[in-house]
């Protein structure tokens, strides 16, 4: 049977379409409303949770990390919310305080390391500087990375540079480190010695001589590396920030 094809049929079809659309919108709105409500509830719960466990959050690093992750999942950044509820919590304060201490440690070691410090070393020094008065708050690498990342707002002066295998270095002098420079730092970190050479980078990374030389010379120009011309086979580039005797010295 052939379908009717008349004005009435077209109008009817149009009407149906509109009804579907309305229904669709309605459902969507419902869902959005529900979601919004759920999020609100979740946020309120999170806030309650945070207030209730404030001390726990400040004291227990594992708790702190999980709390941060929870916040991140709903798009709340307790560090950047300085106003209202979150400021009462003092979660932000905890990280601000850390950030300030990170800057202090970096400034205190800059003159010998040239502005580069491994996160481990930073942590050791920072914990030592905090002393025991702070109710033995345990500071983890994760806390330090979060706090140090907040320092980015001051421009390129502070950067957390991942050097692989869960290790990080914190750069506290202006000047961008490119991928190549980061790769050099990775090599130095994992070579278990405080130096590399053009030859070493060619072997390990398969770089052209020019590329290796350019990267290393740049790091000398940044004050991050020292040149040793007395090695019999080739020039060595030393990094005081990764030289144990330098790291361990108190002055």
């Amino acid at each position: 049977m052939r379908r009717r094809a008349g004005l009435g049929a077209i109008q009817k079809h149009k009407l149906e379409q509109e009804k579907y659309k309305d229904k669709g919108n309605e459902i969507q709105e419902n869902q959005l409303e529900q979601m919004t409500r759920q999020m609100e509830v979740f946020k309120v719960n999170l806030e309650e949770f945070a207030t209730k466990h404030k001390n726990e959050i400040r004291k227990n690093p594992e708790f702190r990390r999980q709390f941060q992750e929870m916040c991140a999942s709903i798009g709340v950044d307790p560090l950047s919310s300085g106003k209202g509820f979150w400021s009462v919590l003092g979660i932000g304060d905890f990280y601000y305080e850390l950030a300030v201490q990170i800057v202090e440690v970096c400034l205190a070691t800059n003159y010998k390391t040239g502005g580069l410090i491994s996160l481990n070393e930073l942590r050791t020094r920072l914990i030592k500087a905090r002393g025991k008065g702070k109710q033995h708050q345990e500071i983890t690498q994760d806390d330090l990375i979060r706090a140090a990342q907040k320092l980015k707002i001051f421009g390129s002066g502070f950067m957390v540079v991942p050097v692989g295998k869960g290790q990080y270095m914190v750069q506290s002098i202006p000047g961008e480190l490119s991928m190549d420079h980061t790769a050099v730092l990775q090599q130095v970190t994992h070579s278990n010695q405080a130096f590399v050479s053009v030859g070493y980078l060619r072997r390990e990374l398969g770089w052209e001589e020019g590329r290796a030389k350019k990267a290393l010379d740049h790091m000398v120009d940044q004050g991050l590396a020292w040149l040793d011309l007395q090695n019999p086979s080739e020039k060595l580039y030393y990094f005081p920030s990764l030289f144990n005797a330098c790291i361990n010295s108190s002055n």
Binding site: D221, L236, A245
Partner: peptide, 14 residues
Amino acid sequence: WQYAFPPFFTLQPH
């Protein structure tokens, strides 16, 4: 510490 740091004995260019 510098005394054990080999490049301490090379005048630095930077």
